[in-house]
């Protein structure tokens, strides 16, 4: 794992941080977020034990001590993007992301302009 700083800004909302803290408390270990694309699982950000972050995932930022990662080749595509990680209550969604059994799902809003920054 390595760190690059291509993202214009990265924010994890307070409510998302609250859910992440709860997951960390339950699991008694740090949790990280990987921004994923593709296929029939993990459509949004995937919350996973930090120890499970891949060797080719790079950290594109952090907020509140929570690291946010992306696969190396996809990380560079986020140059100049603002990223806001939020959480919403969810039914009928799924993935290996740790928050889903609790009835939540994390979301990622990614944009290059000022849109949504107030969120």
């Amino acid at each position: 794992m390595s760190e690059i700083d291509l993202t214009a800004s990265l924010t994890i909302t307070d409510r998302a941080q609250s859910v992440l803290r709860s997951l960390e408390d339950d699991r008694d270990e740090p949790v990280a977020i990987v921004l994923n694309d593709g296929c029939c699982d993990g459509m949004g950000p995937v919350a996973l034990d930090a120890s499970m972050v891949g060797a080719n995932d790079v950290r594109i930022g952090s907020d509140g001590g929570i690291g946010v990662y992306a696969p190396r080749t996809k990380a560079s595509l986020r140059e100049g993007y603002n990223v806001i990680i939020d959480v919403t209550e969810a039914t009928g969604v799924g993935s290996f992301s740790l928050e889903v059994p609790l009835g939540y799902r994390f979301t990622a809003d990614e944009f290059k302009d000022e849109r949504g920054k107030e969120a």
């Binding site: 029939c40 993990g42 995937v46």
Partner: peptide, 24 residues
Amino acid sequence: GAEAGAALASHPAVNGVSFTGSVV
């Protein structure tokens, strides 16, 4: 996935796993 899926993938008595989904 985080519960049943992870339990299946990590179960010591499972001898082969097939997964279709995302890279991460």
